[in-house]
Simulated scan of single mutants.
Amino acid sequence: MIKYTLRFAAEDSEGEHKVSFHAHSTAGALDVAKNSAKGDWADLYERDTLICRMQLVEESGVWLVKPAV
């Protein structure tokens, strides 16, 4: 299993939260990320490498996933 870290804004708008977890694949990690992230953005790391940035689309519950550049 691969270690992932999800980083997103704290609910009180001060600072950020980091959640570490293990998943079998990036697809599995994205499933965990979309259900765990709070706020309107999140960064997903595989080990210590940023693999994508996620942005919530207008309270629709749909996340736009952009590859890390």
Results as ranks from 00 to 15, higher is better:
Y4W: 02
K18A: 10
W41P: 00
G28E: 13
D12E: 13
T49A: 14
H22F: 15
A10V: 00
M1F: 12
E59A: 11
R53I: 08
Y4R: 02
L64V: 02
N35C: 06
S20E: 12
G15M: 00
L6I: 05
K38R: 12
M54T: 07
F8E: 04
E58R: 11
S36K: 14
E46N: 10
G28R: 01
M54W: 02
D48K: 15
V65L: 13
T49H: 13
A29Q: 05
A33Y: 03
S25A: 04
L50N: 03
R47V: 09
S60G: 12
G39F: 02
P67C: 01
S20G: 08
M54E: 08
L6F: 04
E46K: 14
C52N: 02
S25C: 01
G15A: 01
E58M: 13
M1D: 11
S20D: 03
A23P: 04
R7F: 04
R7V: 15
Y45F: 15
S60W: 06
R7N: 10
A68F: 04
S60V: 01
G61R: 06
A27R: 09
V32A: 08
A10K: 09
A29V: 09
M54Y: 01
K18T: 09
V32L: 06
V62P: 03
R53N: 15
C52A: 06
W41R: 15
A33I: 03
S25L: 04
A23Q: 12
V57Q: 14
A9V: 04
A9I: 05
